[in-house]
C-alpha cells in the first residue's frame, strides 16, 4: 500500500495529462468549461493543462455534437466527425461552407466557401438536399432549440444510379441553465444506407439523452437507445419523406418510452431499492422495539426462525 502511494505521488507529466483528460471527457453536457476551470486549478501548471485541454476538447466537442454559430450569421455549424476536414475545419453541408473552429474556446472563428472536392456530386446532393429539407422541417417542429445536419458519409462522388452511398443525419439539442443547476443534451445520429442493388434504404439510429441536476446534489440521467428500420430506394423527394418520417416515428416512440420509464420509477423501479413505507405499511415502531426482542426470544425457544 505504502509503495503504491509513493508511486502515486510521483506522477509523470504524461499521467497527469491523462487524468486531466479523463475529467474533461467525463464532463456532463455543457459543463466542460467548469470542469476545465477546476482541473486547471488542481494541476496548477498551465503547460500541462493546455496540452490536456487541446487533446480533450476536440474529442468532447465532436462526441457531444456541439453546435456553434458561424460568424457570418448563416446559422449554426455542428461539430461532428462526419463533417470534419483537416485543421479543425468542419463542413456545414446546408450552406456549403467550411467553419474553422477553436475547440478550447468553443467558437467558430471564420468560415469559407467549401471547395468542389469537399462537396458531394450533383446526383448525391439532390438526395442530400431533399432529406435535409425534410429533417429541418421535423427538427424545427419538434425541438425548440434543435440543430441538424445531413452529411454524405460515403460515396459522395457517385455520379448516378448503380452505386451505394451513405448519409449521416445528426440532430443535436442542448439546454444549459447553470443558474438553475440544470443542463442537458439530446443527440441522435442516424446512419442511412442507400443500397442500389437491393433498391432499399437501411436506417440505423443511435439516440443519447443526458441530463444533470446539481442543486445541493449531483443526479444524472444517462439514456441510450438504438434502433433499425428500412424503406424503399425511391426518387430523392420520396426517399426524403419516408426517411424523415421513420426518424420522427422512432424518436417520438423513444421519447414516450423515456416518459414511461419515469412514470414507472416511484412505484415499481425505485421500490426495488427502497420502499416508501415498510412492508407493514406503517412507520417503524421505534417506541416499541421490545416486541422484536420478545418475538426473537420466543422463536429461539420454539426453535423456529433463523
Amino acid at each position: 500500500m505504502a509503495e503504491e502511494e509513493e508511486e502515486e505521488t510521483e506522477l509523470s507529466e504524461k499521467q497527469k495529462i491523462e487524468i486531466a483528460k479523463w475529467f474533461l471527457l467525463n464532463s456532463p453536457p455543457g459543463e466542460i468549461y467548469y470542469v476545465a476551470k477546476d482541473v486547471k486549478s488542481i494541476l496548477n501548471d498551465d503547460d500541462l493543462y493546455n496540452q490536456a485541454a487541446s487533446e480533450a476538447f476536440p474529442v468532447y466537442n465532436k462526441s457531444h455534437f456541439i453546435s456553434l454559430p458561424m460568424p457570418d450569421r448563416s446559422g449554426d455549424v455542428l461539430v461532428t466527425s462526419f463533417g470534419e476536414l483537416e485543421g479543425y475545419a468542419y463542413l456545414d453541408p446546408r450552406t456549403a461552407q467550411v467553419a474553422i473552429v477553436d475547440h478550447v474556446k468553443q467558437v467558430c472563428t471564420e468560415v469559407r466557401p467549401a471547395t468542389d472536392e469537399e462537396l458531394p456530386s450533383p446526383y448525391i446532393e439532390e438526395f442530400r438536399c431533399a432529406l435535409d429539407a425534410e429533417i429541418l422541417k421535423y427538427v424545427e417542429e419538434s425541438y425548440p432549440k434543435g440543430v441538424c445536419s445531413v452529411y454524405c458519409a460515403n460515396g459522395k462522388d457517385v455520379e448516378g444510379p448503380g452505386s451505394d452511398f451513405e448519409f449521416a443525419v445528426v440532430i443535436s439539442a442542448a439546454r444549459h441553465s447553470p443558474q438553475n443547476f440544470c443542463n442537458g443534451s439530446w443527440c441522435s445520429m442516424w446512419n442511412i444506407e442507400f443500397k442500389d442493388d437491393q433498391q432499399t434504404v437501411e436506417v440505423k439510429g443511435k439516440i443519447e439523452v443526458d441530463a444533470h441536476y446539481f442543486e445541493e446534489g449531483n443526479v444524472q440521467l444517462d439514456a441510450k437507445h438504438e434502433c433499425k428500420d428500412s424503406t424503399l430506394f425511391q426518387a430523392p423527394d420520396d426517399c426524403a419523406i419516408s426517411i424523415s418520417s421513420i426518424i420522427r416515428h422512432h424518436e417520438t416512440e423513444y421519447l414516450a418510452s423515456l416518459e414511461a420509464s419515469y412514470l414507472n420509477l416511484p412505484d415499481s423501479t425505485f421500490k426495488d431499492l427502497r420502499r416508501k413505507l415498510p412492508v407493514t405499511r406503517t412507520l417503524f415502531p421505534w417506541h416499541n422495539t421490545l416486541q422484536f426482542s420478545l418475538t426473537r426470544d420466543i422463536s429461539k425457544e420454539l426453535g423456529i426462525g433463523k
Partner: peptide, 28 residues
C-alpha cells in the same frame, strides 16, 4: 423518507423536465 422523496420527485423530476425541454412531448 425525505431523501427518497427528493430524489424521486425533485432530482429525477428535474432531469425529466430537462428531457421535455429538449424535446417537448406535445407531439406524442
Amino acid at each position: 423518507s425525505k431523501l427518497r422523496y427528493s430524489l424521486d420527485q425533485v432530482y429525477f423530476g428535474k432531469t425529466r423536465e430537462m428531457v421535455c425541454t429538449l424535446r417537448p412531448p406535445s407531439e406524442v
